[in-house]
Amino acid sequence: MNDKTFLSYLKHADKPFSGWDFSFIDDTGRMKSDLLSWSYGSMALSLIQDSKSMLDMGTGGGEFLSKLGPFPSSAYATECYLPNVPVAKERLTPLGVQVVQIDDDEDLPFESGQFDLVINKHESYSAQEVRRILSKGGLFLTQQVGGHDCEEINEKLGVPLNEEFKDWNLEKALKEIEKHDFKVLKSREECPTQRFYDIGALVYYLKAIPWQAPGFEVDQYTDELYAIHKMIEEKGYFDVTQYRFMILAEAI
């Protein structure tokens, strides 16, 4: 492969990814997404300000949560990806948030009824366990990524959708929520477009989210990536379809 532009994009995509921060390709305009009709951040901010005890599930490096303070006197965040834990602690501990490393969403190290608010952005969860740690009348806010998210990437690479998440959607999530003593207050789903303007941005993205194409390695998909690169050169971009849904539920 002697295409210098293609190879330079791939080399640039080697930049290490830490926490949950896509600014390397997002802030530079190399990847952009259409707007949703709701704002998880606005909803979470309002709920946090009204809470007395809260938990943020899957905080990443704490980048997002750190912008939503001030926090109640009892504020926790969980993270299962070990390299993110020290990043999150450094960012969140000075803000009064205790960061807890966990291994299993179905066995959280908190007391029953400990929180009046649990928030969760793009993190797996057990509806039963979330209900256990919420007090009666407590609120659960989540924004989720559906199993068919960005499936055009998989089609172009010739990689099947991840079987573990393929059937994950709003309908299934609502059934689980309502089964475990929640009253759904709000729910919505949408399919915005996500646009990549160069192949390096796509490669960087795929390295950061290994569940999209499990086992992804650039060397194994050079031909497929080059085909996408040539398409971007001709068209100007590569569009994929995201799948997002949100749920706000009350523990009853």
Rank of each mutant, 00 (worst) to 15 (best):
H12F: 03
A13D: 03
A13S: 15
D14V: 00
K15N: 06
S18N: 05
G19R: 01
F24K: 04
D26Q: 13
T28I: 10
G29N: 04
M31G: 00
K32I: 12
Y40M: 01
L45I: 00
S46H: 12
S51N: 05
S53E: 03
M54W: 01
M54L: 12
M54K: 01
L55D: 01
D56R: 06
G58I: 06
G60Y: 06
F64Y: 12
L65C: 03
L65T: 10
P72W: 02
P72T: 08
S73Y: 06
Y76A: 07
T78F: 06
C80P: 11
C80K: 14
L82E: 13
L82K: 12
P83S: 09
N84Y: 09
N84I: 07
N84Q: 04
V85D: 03
V85E: 08
A88S: 06
A88P: 03
E90D: 12
P94Q: 09
G96W: 05
V97K: 04
Q98L: 10
V99D: 02
V99E: 02
Q101H: 15
Q101G: 11
I102A: 01
D104A: 01
E106K: 11
D107H: 13
D107L: 10
F115A: 04
D116N: 15
K121P: 03
H122G: 05
E123L: 01
S124I: 10
Y125L: 15
Y125D: 03
A127L: 08
Q128E: 14
Q128M: 12
E129F: 10
E129D: 12
R131F: 03
R131P: 00
R132V: 06
I133T: 02
I133Q: 02
S135E: 14
G137Q: 11
L139I: 15
F140A: 08
F140Y: 15
L141S: 07
Q143S: 07
G146W: 01
D149Q: 02
D149H: 15
C150V: 15
C150P: 00
E151G: 02
E152S: 08
E152T: 08
N154F: 10
N154Q: 14
E155A: 11
V159H: 12
L161K: 10
L161Y: 00
K166F: 07
D167H: 13
N169C: 15
L170H: 02
E171D: 13
E171M: 07
K172S: 13
A173T: 14
A173D: 15
K175W: 01
K175A: 14
H180N: 15
H180A: 00
K183Q: 14
K183D: 13
K183T: 14
V184H: 07
E189K: 12
E189Q: 14
P192G: 09
P192M: 04
R195F: 09
F196C: 07
Y197D: 01
Y197S: 03
I199E: 07
V203T: 05
A208Q: 04
P210W: 09
A213I: 02
F216A: 08
E217V: 04
V218R: 08
D219E: 15
D223N: 14
E224I: 00
E224T: 00
I228K: 04
M231N: 11
M231C: 04
F245S: 03
M246C: 13
M246W: 11
I247V: 11
I247Y: 01
A251F: 03
